[in-house]
């Protein structure tokens, strides 16, 4: 690990300012991803601002009937919260499908959103990686790319965003609240938080340096049945090959409302609005699910090793929708 100085932030604005004034400074909370990367010297901050004890660890009701989740709420506490379990079950399911019990006890809500890709070339400092070293190239394009993106990628980077939680939050239309170094606050729709790689894959989010996530707000629970389904190489403690977050509301045998987001396939949690348009108003039949799945993967491009993800994602979408309508 490279040497660094450490301070514990006294409040949100001081934390944001402490990072903003040092170009190589970073926030640290649970540290489960950052310390992993620091040990490998992929992350080399010279100063750490510890925000883990800031009073951002509460889950509160919003006046609109939603929930405001503090940025420092641990993944395990969020998954176990009775309100989340009853009103946003797909969020609990997604959290519980991710990481291990030990990691969930440390990982924070904001840290989960901001975790970095697990692309093996990003992790291997002997290989080119435009995300780790801009301009060096992408070894995954012609390499072992079984885990990589089929949607939203570029010729500069085909890494995927690894979060399960963020996929469920994307289907739930979450809003991300931040504090800027000057003390001002802003709100970012979760779909606008992560950036696509294009030619600058090292720029991963819309956040400025020193801008700190303080909360994630969920609007009132959408009507219908929520299901989160994760497909992976082993039954537990593995990243998604493909995951699906679906909300389906029925009226008779027709679909009245639908929301669909997929994970493990793109550089960000991937909301599939076109597939939702296909579903709304359609009969709750296998053909509608197939049409939605085709629509969701319409622009997908395989790179060899990950070609299988395209049919796998379609099957996972069909299966998840079929489960969701059963109880809708």
């Amino acid at each position: 690990m490279q040497p660094f100085t450490y301070e514990r932030a006294g409040n949100v604005q001081a934390a944001a300012a402490a990072v903003a004034t040092r170009p190589e400074a970073k926030f640290i909370s649970g540290g489960t991803n950052l310390l992993d990367l620091m040990k490998l010297e992929i992350e080399r901050p010279t100063h750490l601002v510890d925000i883990s004890r800031l009073p951002l660890d509460r889950i509160e009701e919003t006046p609109e009937g939603g929930l405001r989740i503090g940025a420092q709420v641990r993944n395990s506490d969020l998954a176990a919260d009775p309100r989340v379990r009853s009103r946003y079950p797909m969020l609990s399911q997604a959290l519980l499908a991710g990481a291990s019990g030990q990691i969930r006890n440390k990982a924070s809500t904001a840290g989960n959103l901001l975790q970095r890709t697990r692309c093996s070339y990003f992790y291997n400092r002997n290989m080119p990686c435009n995300k780790r070293e801009p301009g060096s190239g992408c070894a995954a394009l012609e390499g072992f790319n079984r885990m990589h993106a089929v949607l939203g990628a570029s010729e500069a980077c085909i890494a995927v965003h690894p979060s399960d939680m963020a996929v469920a939050m994307t289907a739930l239309d979450a809003q991300v609240e931040t504090t800027l170094p000057d003390g001002k606050a802003r709100t970012i729709a979760i779909g606008d938080l992560h950036r696509l790689p294009d030619s600058t894959p090292h720029v991963e989010t819309a956040l400025g340096h020193g801008e700190m996530i303080t909360a994630v707000t969920l609007p009132p629970s959408p009507p219908g049945r929520q299901v989160y389904r994760k497909v992976r190489d082993r039954a537990s403690y593995a990243f998604a090959l493909v995951s699906v977050a679906a909300v389906v509301e029925k009226s008779g045998d027709r679909i009245r409302g639908a929301r669909l987001a997929i994970g493990g396939v793109a550089p960000k949690p991937w909301r599939t609005r076109e597939a939702e348009y296909v579903l709304v108003g359609a009969a709750d039949s296998g053909s509608a699910f197939s049409e939605a799945a085709e629509s969701a993967l319409a622009g997908a491009v395989g790179r060899g090793g990950n070609d299988f993800k395209i049919p796998l994602a379609k099957r996972a979408i069909r299966q998840t929708l079929a489960v969701a309508v059963e109880g809708a």
Partner: peptide
């Protein structure tokens, strides 16, 4: 030493964590 094996698991304030993925100062 990367939070994958669990051999370093300890209880902090009653909760299990990977002690290898946590700074002592925290």
């Amino acid at each position: 030493d990367h939070g994958q094996c669990g051999a370093c698991t300890v209880l902090v304030n009653g909760r299990r964590i990977n002690s290898c993925l946590s700074l002592a100062a925290q």
